[in-house]
Amino acid sequence: MPSETPQAEVGPTGCPHRSGPHSAKGSLEKGSPEDKEAKEPLWIRPDAPSRCTWQLGRPASESPHHHTAPAKSPKILPDILKKIGDTPMVRINKIGKKFGLKCELLAKCEFFNAGGSVKDRISLRMIEDAERDGTLKPGDTIIEPTSGNTGIGLALAAAVRGYRCIIVMPEKMSSEKVDVLRALGAEIVRTPTNARFDSPESHVGVAWRLKNEIPNSHILDQYRNASNPLAHYDTTADEILQQCDGKLDMLVASVGTGGTITGIARKLKEKCPGCRIIGVDPEGSILAEPEELNQTEQTTYEVEGIGYDFIPTVLDRTVVDKWFKSNDEEAFTFARMLIAQEGLLCGGSAGSTVAVAVKAAQELQEGQRCVVILPDSVRNYMTKFLSDRWMLQKGFLKEEDLTEKKPWWWHLRVQELGLSAPLTVLPTITCGHTIEILREKGFDQAPVVDEAGVILGMVTLGNMLSSLLAGKVQPSDQVGKVIYKQFKQIRLTDTLGRLSHILEMDHFALVV
C-alpha cells in the first residue's frame, strides 16, 4: 500500500459497493488471473465517493441489488447463522422517566444476534452475496479491517462455511474481542490505534497488504460494500417497522461504517417519512454534520465500534436529520445504567446512543415513540467499562463513588512517597548505550525526554532486548525507535489509591 493515498477510480455505471474482489474501477472485475494482476490496485480507499443510485421515491424494481426479506425461524435451526436477525424490541421503562421523557422509549437489542452484535447481519450478508456472485469459493481466505464486531461476525460465518479468516484490528480494541476471535479460529493482526486510516500501518493498510500477498484472499470491505446497508434496509428496518406496527417518530443510532443508519433510515424514509433520524458520533470522530460539531482538541476516545477519521463510502449522511456528539463518560455511564436499571447487557456504544436519545427525544410528546439501536453486548468489555477499576483509572468514576473498604494508605498523596527525580535518556542515544546505562543503574525503564525536557515516551529494558533479539533494531539504532509513546501519567497530588489502580493494569506510571 502506498504512503500517498491515490484516488480510487470510478467506473461508468453500476453501484460502487459490489461485493467481491475490487477492480481499479471499484466494481467486480472478471477475466484471467493475468488481467486481474495487471488491473487490481494495491488498495482502494474506504472513503471513495459513493456511486449508489438510491433515491427517495425511486421504484424498488430499479435497484441493481439482490434483495432479501426477513424469514421466520424454524423450530430447529440448521446452523447458528440462522440465529442472525429477528432481534427483540424491548421497552426501556426507567431511564426515559428518569430523564423526563414523555414518549415511549424502545430498544432494538442487536446483541441477541448469534455473534453478539449488529455486525453479524452485514457479515453474513457480505459472505452470502460474495458466494452468490462467485467471488468467494471453498478454501478462500477472508481478510477484514475491523474494530472487532464485524470480525467476530465474519469469523463466526467463516467457521460454519469453512473459510480461512484473518482479522486486522487496532490495538485499542478489547482483549475479549481478541479472545472470541481466536476461539472462532480467526487469525488476528493488531495495528497502532493512532495510525491514520490511509497510513500503511493502519488496520485498513495492513489488511490490503495481506490481501496482495495471500492468494485467493478477499477483503469484503464493510466500508464500501453495498451488502452492509442492504442488510439493514432489507431486514433490520423491516423488523423495526413490523415490531412497531409502522408507528415510530424517531430513530437514534450510533454511527461507525454508517451501514446501520443508512440502511434503516432509507427504508424508514420510504415507509415512515415523518420519522426523524438521529445520528450519534463520538467526540474525536469526524462523521457528524455540520462540520463545526467535529471541532475539538480530542483525537482519541475509548468507546469502541463507532466514529472514524474518514467518511466511509457506505455512509449516506443525507438521510440523517440531526447529529449529536457523545463523550466517553456519558457513554459508559449510560451503558452501566442500562445494565443495572433495565437488565440490558449492552456495550458502550449503546450507552452513547441512549445518552443522546434522552436529549433528542425531549421534543417528542406522549403517545409518540423513539427507537434506539443497541449494537453489541457487554461480553466484549468485561475488563473495560464493566470494571470499576478501569473506570477509575480512566477518570470516568471517582473514588467516592465506590463504597468498598480501602487499605490505610489509600488516600495518601503520591508526594508522600518522597520520590527522587528519575533517570532520563535522550532519544538520540543508541539502544546499546541505553541498555548499558539501565543495567549500570539497576533500572528496568526510563523516560525519554528531548533537550527541552519534554517527555516523549518510555523505554524499557525488556522491550529493547526483545527488539534486538527479533532483529527489529540494532544496538547502533537510536533509542527513539523503541519508545512507548502511550503511558499513564500521575500527579504528586493524586492518591496512592489512584496509582494502585493504574499499576494493576500497566507496568509503570510516570509522575509529573
Rank of each mutant, 00 (worst) to 15 (best):
P229A: 02
K119L: 03
V252L: 14
M89T: 07
K271C: 11
G148Q: 01
G246N: 02
L124A: 11
I95R: 04
S254R: 06
L42A: 10
R121I: 01
S32T: 06
S61W: 09
R164K: 12
P215L: 04
K94S: 15
K82I: 10
L220Y: 03
F111Y: 10
P273T: 04
T141A: 13
V10S: 15
V168R: 04
A69C: 12
A157G: 13
G162F: 05
D120Q: 05
R125M: 06
R121Y: 01
K172L: 01
R164G: 04
S63K: 09
S174W: 00
C275Q: 04
R91L: 04
V252D: 09
P138S: 14
E62C: 14
L251M: 12
P74D: 11
S123H: 06
A130I: 01
R196E: 01
L101E: 00
P200I: 08
S117M: 04
R224N: 09
K247M: 15
C275G: 06
L220G: 00
S217G: 11
K75W: 12
S32Q: 11
A8R: 14
L156F: 02
A8C: 03
K271M: 11
K137M: 08
N113L: 05
I152H: 00
P6E: 09
P41M: 09
V10R: 09
A114I: 02
K211W: 07
G116Y: 07
T141R: 07
S117V: 04
P200W: 11
S174V: 00
V252E: 07
D129A: 09
S73L: 12
S217F: 06
G57M: 07
G148E: 01
E131W: 00
D245V: 08
S19Y: 09
I127Y: 06
A159Y: 05
P41T: 13
G134P: 06
G57F: 08
C272P: 08
L181A: 03
T87H: 06
P59Q: 09
F99A: 14
V178E: 07
E9I: 10
G57C: 11
Y233G: 00
E131G: 08
E40T: 10
R58I: 09
C244K: 00
G151H: 00
H67F: 11
S147Y: 00
P78V: 05
I76H: 06
T257F: 00
I152C: 02
H17C: 03
I152S: 04
E270K: 13
